[in-house]
Nucleic acid binder design. Sequence first.
RNA 1: GCCGAAGUGGCGGAAUGGCAGACGCGGUCGACUCAAAAUCGAUUGAGGCAACUCAUGUGGGUUCGAGUCCCACCUUCGGUACCA
Length: 835
Amino acid sequence: MTSDTTSDTSTSEPGRGERYAPRSIEVAWQARWERDDLYRTPDHVEGRPNRYHLTMFPYPSGDLHVGHWFAMAPSDTLARYFRMRGHNVMFPMGFDAFGLPAENAALKGGLHPADWTRGNIERMRGQLKSMGATFDWSREVNTSAPEYYKWTQWWFTQLFKQGLAYRKNALANWCPSCNTTLANEQVVDGRCERCDTLVEQRAMEQWFFAITKYAEELLHNEDLDWPEHVKTMQRNWIGRSEGAEAAFALESPTAEGVDEIRVFTTRPDTLHGVTFMVLAPEHPLVTQITTSDHLDAVRAYQERASHATEIERLSTEREKTGAFTGAYCVNHLTGDRVQIWVADYVLASYGTGAVMAVPAHDQRDFDFAKKYGLPIKVVIAPPAIDGKPWDGSDFAEAWTAEGTLVASKQFDGMPNVGAKKAVANYMAEHGWGGSTINYRLRDWLISRQRYWGAPIPIVYCDDCGPVTVPEEQLPVELPYDVEFVPTGQSPLALSEEFVHTTCPQCGKPARRETDTMDTFMCSSWYYMRYPDPQDAEAAFSRASADTWLPVDQYTGGSEHATMHLLYARFFYKVARDLGLVPGDEPFTRYFSQGQILGPDGRRMSKSRGNVVAPDDQVEKWGADTFRAYLMFLGPWDQGGPYDVDSIVGVSRWLNRVWNVVTDPPALVDDAARGKALRRSSHATLQKVTEDLEAKRFNTAIAAMMELTNDMQRLRDEGTADEAAWTEAVRLLTLMLAPPCPHIAEELWSRASGTYSVHQQSWPDYDPAAIVRDTVDLVVQVNGKVRDRIEVATDADEAAARATAEGTPRIAEQLAGKDLVRVIYVPGRLLNFVVR
RNA sequence: GCCGAAGUGGCGGAAUGGCAGACGCGGUCGACUCAAAAUCGAUUGAGGCAACUCAUGUGGGUUCGAGUCCCACCUUCGGUACCA
């Protein structure tokens, strides 16, 4: 094996008939690259601009999955391509190591989450290395290591100091039998996945980040070089809507002194048509205003609503339900006294948790009013039809389109669109509300009642309140010896040693916060750590941020389009406001790859028995074949089924490449065939270059296959032009280097005797080599293909027409017809439109 | 439900509004072989002797020309705030 030689003189004679043996080549070259530290990325290399490529780091679930390869192999190909284009590319890797599965494993298998996670990381690091990727392992991060989560905790303290962290009551899924909170994933059909008990919603004090303070800035993503659909999803997720807040007076103020209900509406123009109010079942006012004769019904309704998921509650197809509270409020504009209901289609987390109902002009309200016999008051008259104005008759459904205000006092006769502002202004003048903007985006709940996460660095002191742990006392370390049996509290609450501490401000005895942080926090800043992974003094230095940030190319699963990517953008903006990073956005370019499916076209899972193990594929076919097949099977942004039978096609291709290069035809001087080969190799280079830039790996591989087939044909013919052949071999090897790094290195080494192909420059194609003298032109009559003709590449319309009309088939088609039009697209087609 | 994406041969897929099916899998036939595997070659959307016709989820539309653009719908996939 050439990789074992230490010199650059590995000019072993190409062994005729020597078979392509991928595994031995791959293992040897990987060892050589590692020994030579080929992929360690220095912060600066003379003459090479820095470029930061990043693929989302994996959760260490146990074994590397085909999905990981599908995400990382093309990313690595891109990183390698840009290295050949002259960049100093950093392509780091790490592990998103906190999370629920480790705790599940602990409960099931009795292994400690820390040990389970450590073992998985070690196994997966080895599996990742078998990909032959350019990961710089000297920069590896592990979010569950105290050296890392110390700084995740530091982030919390920074957000706290910026006034972006606050505590408030929030609901969590609660299993009364297991005595524990449940993740949404652990709730199946409203029941606990472990014990099948009906899940409840339980309120508890939890920490939030005020991401909504950045809503407006996060909305502005138009300059990002991201897929449009991802930017659209983010904008819709943030969900800005313009409207008004409106206060309604409670007929009887509550014992606590609350005398109004505030609602958000996008339709202030319909305020005069309010005929009832609806509160979310969880709205704090509900228990205060409900009259004694309605209490039982409302309580029963709240209980029922607590079992419904948000998706169910928001479904517009589901029949609306609700309960009357017995209380009334008064519409300031009209003096109308209206009933106050509770209904689960109103969510406590959106707007103010209360809505005004205008059944005449909102379909949900209309259905609700019909069902419960509530009044319907028309305040927007539909436009006249055929000169006949609306006759005042009842609606069969809500009128949600434009119209003119009626029954709205001084606003009568106004077009409703203009009335929005007018009514809102009138409300503002009287102190009843006014124009406002509402976002669908909610503040980020980061508290988790779990063990395997970074502890929230807060101490509760009777005198000082919640106090952040000072930086010099970080990290607040996770105690190892903890009881995992669910007790109704976070496992950390059971550790006396952990809980009892002293207040960092006054020194008195105090208690630690026992919740841990959402793992999305760890992944919101990991890309800032790679530039400075060993820093013990800071999360990262400003200098390292200026050297590497923002990330030039981020790639990851489309499932992260909203949450992770929005949280990461939020953190970056906070970091900017703290003066820590350059620019406003963390990821200049982003590409979302699709999902790889099982051979049956469904998501791979153990229970379906359709999991393909990457280690087996590497063992059977080799890493290069496996990498290339993942790139070949379809467009990267779409994913698709992994077909265990089709990979053989890619294996055959690399074998053909091997045979063609190591056992060439007799090389002669043959200018004519040399020109054709040269056209083929340079056209391929152009295609592959364009495809790699656009991340179209499937068609890039297909183009290389076509070039290989051309070379195979010459090999079968027995001779090839020496200069063109040598050049074709060189170009093919260089083009193979990004997607198939091992075979490229081996063939390069054999052909040139030098090392390494991965330190070569990407070649430029010669446009002159690609030009043809003649082109095939399609000839259509009335848009249907009737013939094909060969014309000079630069033929004008008259010349093309003359040739076409001279062919018997076209002459026959045109005979006796009136020529209406001729359309000529040079190099493509000629279309005769006849009658 | 809402937001986003995708539907093309037996299968994965290709196609700046311009020859639908590149490339590959599978199939069929052939070469090599005692035989098989591997490899190589030919062929392969459907119908038709052919001219030609039909064909890109469904139904409409725009255009000389539509897989591609527009409208309506159907199906599948991703996300839906505690899976990561």
